[in-house]
Simulated assay, not measured.
Amino acid sequence: MPAHESPELVDLFTAYTAGPDSIGAHLRASAARTRAGDPLLVVTGADMALYPGDGGPPTVLPYRLSNRGFKELAAVSHLGTALASLIELRHREPDGTWRRDADRLLHHVRRARAANSTALWRDRIAAISYRGREADIAAMIDYACAITERYLVRALADPSLLDHRTLRETYLDDGHHELPVSFNRIMVATFFLVGLDTSHRLITWLDDQGIDWTRTMVVVVGRIGRPTAGVTWRTNGVAGMVLAASRGELPLDRLYIAPHAAGFATPVDGDLREVRAVEGQLRQLWAGTRVTVELGAAMFEGYPAFCPGDADLGRDGQTVTRAADVVSEQPLIRAVDDWLTLITRLRLVMEDPRQLLSGAVTDYAAQQLIAHANDPRAVTVPGLDNEPYPAHGTAHAAA
């Protein structure tokens, strides 16, 4: 049987928050109009677009497609994980199917080692940020392939070597007498080289734009990396690059990450029609988020404020005891009548764009259910239970 909805109460809900004619929609549109002249920097998983404001044409950098050497370096970075995965397959699939994967990996390692050279990195991949290091990169990749080939050959001959401890002690970790360089160090080097190249190109491009970071609206949209990655300031690598490129001039609270928002496809042959078409909705996304943050500060003045970042104050589990405190994560609710914390959480979910607006006390409700054998009747509902509400129908009508 479908859940019943009261039309009258649903209409009250939509009057503020749903539909193009709601109060919330009007406020977001108004906020976007007041910021129409501000620069807007939009980052997707593949591109970066700068909208200068006031209808000026956007400029686009396809930073992923122009990445030189990414797949080649990532191929080497993944060798350690590939070997660890073979170990797992051997233990999980005792029928020996791991051997086909091991043989195929060995084949490709040998082909990659034969194709690798200083000339490949200097003359064909030719990443500007790798200039002067091409011989060193080629030597590192040759070494990585060589030690991986040796491990695979030995493991195929003696499958008992396909063991996580053996992999750590003879391949991954420092201290093995046969290896001058552990593979863990190679993983760090390859990841760093990719970050070095991407950051160099982004910083160069952003410097060329002459951006006023104090006025710029920055939003990272869509998926970047694996599905669970990059949804916070500290875990989104591209956001970190933009913050670094601003040389500290971009306030953290002007950078929003919207993993569920749609951006635009990489322009083909300089066609920017799609990039232009989404500017309005992306401006409204940023401005609408910002105006909710500002509402939180206005509505809950006198309660601890949200402080973006990884500040010591406001870490998860902290208790707040005074209005002068700041929080960067949900503070710990000490009791059902801990109103300073309960209302501080209302302010936090509005000011912190990472939070779900309805999630101010959801975790506390779940904790209380666990503490009371999952019996909702045994839980005290703050703000409802034991409050002196007049009986239904006897409350004073609004003037």
Rank of each mutant, 00 (worst) to 15 (best):
A139M: 08
H26R: 10
D325C: 02
H392V: 15
R35I: 05
G280E: 14
A189I: 14
R28N: 06
V379A: 09
S358Q: 13
T190R: 10
I87P: 03
R99H: 01
L252Y: 06
N184Y: 12
P227V: 05
D47I: 00
R168V: 15
I370D: 13
G240K: 04
P308E: 10
A366K: 10
R154H: 06
W213T: 02
L73P: 04
R100Y: 04
L295P: 00
L193Q: 15
D312S: 09
S160F: 04
T59I: 09
V218K: 02
W98L: 00
L50N: 05
V336L: 12
T341W: 04
D173W: 10
G280M: 07
E149H: 03
M241T: 13
P58G: 05
A265L: 13
G359F: 01
L272E: 09
A15N: 04
T319S: 15
T232N: 11
W286V: 03
P376A: 01
A397T: 09
F183K: 01
V293S: 09
V219K: 05
H176I: 07
L196G: 06
H372Y: 06
G175P: 12
L9F: 08
G359I: 07
M1F: 13
L252V: 03
P227Y: 03
R226V: 11
M187N: 15
G19H: 00
R131M: 11
L356C: 03
V275R: 12
P251S: 12
L83M: 05
A245P: 14
Y151D: 00
G309Y: 03
V291N: 04
V42M: 06
T214C: 05
A157H: 08
F191V: 09
D207N: 14
I87W: 02
F306C: 05
P57V: 11
A366C: 13
D174I: 11
F306L: 06
L369G: 08
V10E: 13
